[in-house]
Computed example of a mutant assay.
Amino acid sequence: MSSRISWLEPQEQLEAREEQLREQINALSDAERKTFYHEQSKLIKDPDNYAVLNYFFLGGVHHLYLGRYKRFFAELILLIIAILSFILGGNGLGIVILIALCGYELPQLFLSQKIVRQYNEAISRELYEQIANTRLPDHKSK
Score class of each variant (00 low, 15 high):
Y55P: 03
Y55M: 00
Y55D: 03
Y55H: 00
F56K: 01
F57E: 07
F57P: 05
G59S: 03
G60Q: 12
V61G: 04
H62K: 00
H63K: 15
L66G: 01
L66W: 00
G67S: 03
R68D: 10
R68S: 07
Y69N: 07
Y69H: 10
F72Y: 14
F73N: 05
F73Y: 11
F73C: 08
E75R: 09
E75P: 07
L76F: 07
I77F: 01
L78Y: 03
I80Q: 06
I80P: 01
I80Y: 06
I81E: 03
A82Y: 02
L84R: 05
F86N: 09
F86G: 07
I87L: 09
G90A: 06
G92Q: 09
L93Y: 08
I95F: 08
L98P: 06
L98W: 08
I99Q: 05
A100F: 15
A100T: 15
L101A: 09
C102F: 11
C102W: 13
G103P: 09
Y104T: 02
L106F: 04
P107Y: 10
Q108E: 09
Q108N: 14
Q108Y: 12
L109G: 01
L109D: 05
S112Y: 01
S112W: 05
Q113R: 11
K114C: 04
I115Q: 01
I115C: 01
R117M: 06
R117T: 06
Q118W: 03
Q118P: 00
Y119G: 06
E121L: 13
E121R: 14
A122S: 06
A122L: 03
S124D: 10
S124I: 11
L127K: 13
Y128H: 15
E129A: 12
E129Q: 15
Q130T: 06
Q130E: 10
I131T: 12
A132L: 15
A132C: 15
N133Y: 15
N133M: 13
T134K: 15
